[in-house]
């Protein structure tokens, strides 16, 4: 390792930490009672978080996602995608979203399905 390597590493770490602090500071605040589900970047459905439900999103070409609302939390219960990263993103609710790495998002990139907690 050379001096410039250490500089590069420090700069990236500084940018990341400042960025994370800025994200926290400038994050919108408000009430959350709905989650918006987007498919291929258009709104598919808005679901209230106080009603337990399972929403099946069948895009007709083998892409299926199951979004579940349970006890005030919303999560991807299952998905037809290969990596299942959307399922491992876990439960999201108005109490825990600020400490989640993905904050108020659950994203299934292969199927282009997005769940967003609506902050209003």
């Amino acid at each position: 390792m050379k001096k410039r390597d250490v500089i590069i590493i420090s700069v990236f770490l500084a940018v990341a930490i400042i960025g994370l602090i800025a994200v926290k500071l400038f994050a919108p605040v408000g009430n959350i009672s709905y989650a918006d589900i987007y498919v291929d970047s258009s709104l598919y459905k808005s679901v209230p978080l106080n009603n337990d439900a399972v929403i099946t999103i069948d895009q007709g070409d083998g892409k299926i996602n199951y979004v579940e609302v349970k006890d005030g939390s919303i999560f991807m219960a299952d998905s037809s995608c290969a990596d299942h990263l959307c399922v491992t993103q876990g439960k999201m609710n108005p109490q825990n979203y600020e400490s989640r790495p993905m904050r108020n998002w659950i994203i299934c990139l292969p199927n282009l399905v997005t769940v967003e907690l609506r902050i209003e």
Partner: peptide
């Protein structure tokens, strides 16, 4: 792809 520029915040998590 998702047309959500708001997602860019995640860069900082990944950067670490």
């Amino acid at each position: 792809l998702l047309q959500t520029p708001g997602l860019m915040f995640y860069v900082f998590v990944l950067m670490i």
